[in-house]
Design a protein around this nucleic acid. Structure first.
Length: 828
DNA sequence: ATCTCCCGCCATATG
DNA sequence: CATATGGCGGGAGAT
């Protein structure tokens, strides 16, 4: 871009702004249209409320407005005004405000009858803004299916009728894309940087980012509203729209539904092109996110908050929209129908759907596509485009589609056909297989994250059958899936794994790691994994850092670093017992995907020993059932402790009961010592395959694997054999509270902090687990705990198992740490 | 200085 | 070809 811009602008509209809120929205234009029509209320009480609310948060705004008004008045008096042309301060021109005005024109729930058409020209004129701005708003609304384009300058207003479905769909897709894990990874990465051990972390980062395999999905459509005008379709997926959807997904899959811009930007960037951490790109992404956030804020779906971490305070947004239901129906639907959409879920236009279905390509069931392919394609496209010339226009493929498991058809439009096909094919196959298998019984797969998930009965044929889990990636061969008979929700699962670090390194590590992540370590020495609880945020008593020793939990103070060697074993051991079952589980999987090409992924996965941590979450708040706890290990803290983890072998019903809402894995670092390799128990390749022949005596392993895989800790294909040796200890972590938030009424600040645990020691101790996740609605505080395991045998060290890219496995010993971190969320 | 994010150039898509 | 869309990033207002 050469500098072309001319700074002209200026006064122009001068005051229009005034109109703003109160005056009703559309003062200016002559032909006032009756638009608002009935239900709507341009200025009805509702709208006022909206305004108020919105205004409230940004008090500033309102204040300013007032000021403005007065100013204006004065201005007028003054008559001159040239002074300030710019009365309308920048704020008044904000997209958020504009969006409010826009929204005020239409009813939230328009009746079918009405003609809710939107004419961009008119709107722009009435609101007195450039068209460009209207596009910004409309594009976001489109992403939520609140409007749909009819034709050239025309859009249809749907209001919030489709909102819940859309959110469900988005949540699902988000889960499929493992956004939760991606978030964790990013956070972890950040964390690492902080104290990082020297080096070249950048590269690593880049890699890791890039490696996300997840693909990127294109615009998510709802069944009913696919495309209206032929013309409309074409540009369907482009960034703002898609970005908006992804952004929303992040909220929907995050446990504390708070997403920082930084994280969001990284994820969104990462998806597209690998790396390119480019700063400018990042900045641009942030800009766009602000635009989107402003619109979403106007819709009252999110609100701005700040998260304070060690590093400082960062802008973030908190979801304030409706809680998205897991939607059972959906799940069912998925498995079942392919043809026409089930009557149920769709309230909307079935007709269209059907029609669509008519030519269901059948193909992709989900959005799965091979991520790598997609990425490649995209990046290529981008490059091309950027470079100059001809933009290739991607072909869109029509087909596909629909049949997705999920009720809504999604299509990936942009990907070049070829890629798409390939992808589809791959994924499809895989999926089909899975599906078939899964059909038998698991419904668990999809979405329902929270309480709902059901595991498969372990005993059953499970092994192979995994439902298509969320893993959308075509990549994973079914086989791997088989591993986990149990279904884990990727989304929030709470299992934790621990990784041990080598003592030496431990120091460094202390701090906290946000959710789990893997570090790709260049060096192999130690390994550590840690898991933390799912919620992203926890509050911890401890303080930051590094020194904390006792900080941890009340229950058990661990000194972490310091004493790696010892530690209370007792408890741990107990745990072990229970955990024994678990032990079996550890598996590592190797990634096998087609994609090997992506080493990155490989690189990612560091090898490590994985230990399942406990996790338990209770549906209800923090509390776990005592019973469980009791049963498990008695840890000190009752509350959090129930380590189910070891216990994983729960049956489906149990799971449900338990609620494993959140699983998080937080691996810390893993380092392996080469030497250790020998010792390692080996994983045989055989494992890779559907290793679990056994019916899953213990689900736990499978669960573990599954989880790990999903999380990305381990490559698919690799399993971790249960190691008898291992023990894990539940360590209690501190509970934290999450916000319970009341949203509207008062703002509260929520703080969350995480604590870190440090563990070392040998004997087994383990952590605890915990975190119940609570649905927002519940408003219960949540607690999180962290766990870690130790091996019994060695004093500080634990054997690690790792799979390397080469496929070798190694084991090393190390100690585990759990860092703590603290987070606060404050509202403005 | 940093956080927000408006503005509008200009590449693209659509008709 | 004229427009309609909308990516993008400079740079300025708000803090």
């Amino acid at each position: 871009r050469s500098g072309l811009k001319t700074p002209l602008k200026q006064a122009a509209t001068s005051h229009s702004v005034l109109a703003e809120i109160q005056p009703g929205c559309q003062p200016l234009t002559t032909p006032p249209k009756p638009k608002e029509t009935l239900p709507a209320d341009p200025w009805t009480p509702t709208s006022n409320l909206k305004m108020l609310i919105s205004a409230a948060s940004p008090e500033i705004r309102s204040r300013e407005q007032r000021r403005e008004l007065s100013n204006n008045a004065s201005q007028e008096h003054l008559s001159g005004d040239e002074y300030e042309k710019s009365q309308p301060s920048r704020k008044e021109k904000s997209l958020g405000l504009l969006c409010h005005k826009f929204l005020a024109r239409y009813p939230d729930y328009p009746s079918a009858a009405e003609n809710n058409y939107i004419c961009l020209d008119e709107v722009a004129e009435e609101l007195n803004v450039e068209r460009r701005r209207i596009y910004d708003i409309v594009n976001v609304l489109e992403s939520l299916h609140m409007v749909s384009r009819l034709a050239k300058n025309r859009y249809a207003w749907h209001g919030r009728h489709n909102l819940s479905k859309t959110l469900q769909a988005l949540k699902k897709v988000g889960e499929e894309n493992k956004y939760t894990q991606q978030i964790q990874m990013i956070k972890k990465r950040e964390y690492e940087h902080e104290f990082d051990f020297d080096g070249e972390r950048n590269e690593e980062m880049a890699r890791s980012l890039g490696s996300n395999e997840h693909s990127e999905m294109s615009f998510v459509e709802l069944p009913g509203m696919e495309f209206r005008a032929a013309s409309v379709n074409s540009r369907k997926d482009k960034s703002l729209r898609v970005m908006s959807q992804k952004f929303v997904m992040l909220f929907l899959v995050s446990t504390p539904q708070i997403v920082s811009l930084e994280v969001a930007a990284k994820i969104l960037i990462g998806e597209d092109q690998l790396e390119d951490l480019d700063k400018s790109k990042f900045k641009t992404k942030i800009r766009r996110l602000y635009d989107i956030a402003n619109v979403l804020s106007s819709l009252e779906l999110i609100k701005k908050v700040h998260v304070t971490e060690e590093r400082g305070r960062k802008p973030a947004f908190k979801w304030t929209g409706p809680e998205v239901l897991p939607n059972i129906q959906d799940t069912k639907l998925e498995t079942t129908s392919t043809t026409c959409p089930p009557p149920i879920s769709e309230s909307i236009p079935s007709k269209e759907q059907c029609s669509k279905n008519l030519f269901p390509s059948r193909g992709k069931q989900n959005f799965t596509r091979h991520p790598s392919l997609i990425k490649l394609v995209k990046s290529i496209e981008n490059d091309r485009r950027k470079i100059q010339s001809a933009p290739t226009s991607p072909v869109k493929i029509s087909a596909s589609t629909d049949q997705n498991l999920s009720a809504f058809p999604s299509k990936m439009a942009q990907v070049p056909a070829i890629a798409k096909h390939q992808v589809e094919g791959q994924s499809k196959k895989a999926k089909e297989m899975k599906m078939k298998m899964s059909k038998s019984g698991l419904e668990c797969n999809s979405s329902s994250p929270e309480a709902v998930r059901k595991p498969e009965p372990p005993g059953t044929a499970a092994p192979s059958q995994q439902p298509a889990l969320s893993q959308p990636l075509g990549v994973c061969p079914p086989s791997h899936s088989s591993l986990s008979p149990v279904i884990l929700p990727h989304t929030q699962s709470g299992v934790s794994y621990a990784i041990y670090l080598h003592p030496s390194q431990a120091h460094t590590v202390t701090t906290y790691s946000p959710s789990f992540m893997l570090q790709p370590l260049p060096r192999a020495n130690v390994t550590g994994i840690k898991s933390i609880n799912s919620q992203g945020v926890n509050k911890i008593t401890t303080e930051e850092g590094d020194n904390q020793r006792a900080t941890d939990d009340p229950t058990k103070p661990l000194t972490a670093k310091e004493r790696p060697t010892v530690k209370s074993e007792t408890s741990s051991q107990r745990c072990l017992k229970r955990s024994q079952a678990l032990q079996e589980n550890n598996l590592i999987k190797r990634y096998r995907s087609d994609e090997e090409s992506f080493d990155a992924s490989l690189t990612f996965f560091p090898s490590g020993y994985l230990i399942p941590l406990t996790q338990c979450t209770h549906g209800n708040k923090a509390g776990f059932s005592d019973e469980e706890k009791a049963g498990m290990c008695s840890l000190q803290r009752t509350t959090y402790s129930s380590p189910i983890a070891g216990v994983l072998p729960m049956t489906a019903p149990e799971l449900k009961a338990v609620n494993i809402p959140a699983f998080h894995i937080t691996p810390l670092n893993i380092m392996l010592s080469p030497t250790s390799l020998a010792a390692a128990p080996v994983l045989s390749n055989s494992c890779l395959n559907s290793s679990n022949t056994s019916p899953a005596p213990n689900p736990s392993p499978s669960v573990l694997n599954f989880t790990l895989q999903h999380v990305g800790l381990i490559p698919a294909g690799v399993q971790v054999p249960a190691n008898p040796v291992l023990q894990h200890l539940p360590v209690p972590s501190q509970p934290e509270n999450v916000s319970r938030s009341s949203e509207n009424t008062n703002l509260q600040e929520e703080k969350v902090s995480k604590n870190v645990l440090q563990l070392l020691g040998c004997g087994g101790r383990s952590g605890k687990c915990s975190t119940p996740c609570v649905p927002k609605e519940a408003q219960v505080p949540q607690t999180v705990t962290e766990n870690f395991f130790r091996t019994p045998g060695g004093p500080n060290t634990v054997p690690l198992l790792s799979a390397n890219s080469d496929g070798t496995n190694r084991i090393s010993q190390g100690t585990l740490y759990i860092p703590q971190r603290k987070l606060e969320v404050s509202e403005d």
